[in-house]
Simulated assay, not measured.
Amino acid sequence: MVMNRRIIEHFLIVLFLCLMNYDGVRGKPPIKTIKTEYGDIFDCVDFYDQPAFHHPKLKSHNYHPQMKPSLFMMKVVDPSKSITDTLESMKLPDGGCPVGTVPVRRFTKKDLTRHKLLPEPEDNFVANGNNFNDSKARRKKPLKGYNTAIVSTVDNPNNKFGGASMIAAIYNPRSTGQQHSACRLKLIKGKNIIQVGWRVDPTLYGDNRTRLFIHFNDGTNSCFDLLCPSFVVVSELSPFGQPFRHISDIHGEHFDWAFQIKWDQQKGNWWLFLQHMTDQYIPVGFWPKEVFDDFGNYATRVEWGGVVYSPAGVLLPPMGTGNYPIIKSALSIAYCRNIALLDDKGQYIDISNSNLPTTSTNSLLYSVADYPNYGLGSDYNHTILYGGPGEL
């Protein structure tokens, strides 16, 4: 973990100096700089100057800004019927980034200092032999401070999942100091992890707003958003770390958002799709197969739901709405609806009548419920409810 932290800190310092001195990977200044209403600064950098191409295995890449998935095909869920925030409302101001550039959130010296307080990754891997292809060899060593309330696939080393999706309600659970509270879609194979969702994380972002995040872990390096060279951005509409403009209120309006991760069968990359407008998805970028040790074909486990963290001696924060899912009400409980699963051929796996395993690491503080048939029509097919008050 010490080596991992040193590698990430070194990369952050280099990137910080590059942006401050307008000296990108190729020595080019940002094409455009945008300051948001939240005080964040995004640099619109040329596609080829983005952080991903610092990765030593991507030095000779042939990726280009017009890239699209080989299977730019099926939609896993249809977001058109949801009351939802959209990627349009998360676009950067001042016309956003120009085509051919990608937004990279700038960080400050204060951010660098704060990032040193980030906790170890949620999962600590303990090898059982050298076979990380076997999910039984991937042992979770519980880390103090983390609690989850999730629905997952059965933990079977023979599973072959080529993607998953969810439409998640957007909330703002109170988190301060080094606490964080999040909702995520998470794909796992061996020691490799990719995930997407929303989180409230003052240590990572410097405030307690609910923000869009991605996360990567190859067992050695672990980082959020673009803070290490692991994710190739292809869209100017992907401001990772940007706050959601609209937050659900259990006594008022409700907003949710759709997330998809899909494996490109021809290229082996893992693509991230985010909702755009009200009836379509756009591919915003991908995790290249080169950055993993063995994740170029399928995942063996998928998780949906919530996670919280507090350091030792600090009370645990709320998860979701702060309410337990003791009643079947999506209006007062945090949810992930229309969850879906793909096999390694890109075909739907029918989970409409399947109760999936549920796990709550502390059932006194957080809980989760799985409803394969939620009973509210096609807008709420397979739905999970999760959350809890924590200790606050």
Rank of each mutant, 00 (worst) to 15 (best):
G100D: 02
L274Q: 08
T278F: 09
V151L: 14
I41G: 01
Y298F: 14
P311V: 03
F72S: 13
F224M: 06
V200M: 07
K140W: 13
R106L: 02
G39T: 05
E37I: 12
P372S: 06
I167C: 14
P283L: 06
Q347V: 06
N373L: 08
V151C: 13
P202C: 07
V314L: 06
P79A: 09
V14K: 14
V151Q: 11
V196E: 08
E236G: 01
F224R: 08
P229V: 13
I250P: 13
G375V: 03
D94T: 10
D43F: 14
A369Q: 05
D279V: 05
N381I: 14
V102K: 05
K186A: 07
S165D: 00
D40F: 11
Y380S: 12
N133M: 07
G296Q: 06
R245S: 05
V307M: 04
F72A: 14
Q280M: 06
V302Q: 00
V2C: 11
T176H: 11
I282N: 05
H251A: 11
A164C: 03
K328E: 03
S332A: 11
P65W: 04
T220C: 06
Y348V: 06
D134P: 00
P103R: 01
T361F: 08
A149K: 01
V126I: 15
E37R: 12
K57I: 02
I188C: 07
K345P: 10
K289D: 03
F132M: 08
H215G: 04
F11N: 12
P98G: 08
R5F: 07
I167T: 09
G145P: 06
S89K: 11
N297E: 05
R174G: 04
F224I: 04
V154L: 05
G95A: 07
G313V: 03
S89N: 11
G387E: 13
Q195G: 15
G190W: 09
S310C: 04
T36N: 07
H55P: 07
G145N: 01
L227S: 09
I193Q: 06
I327N: 11
P389C: 09
D94A: 07
Y281I: 10
L315P: 10
D370L: 08
Q195P: 13
T220P: 04
E236N: 12
N338C: 02
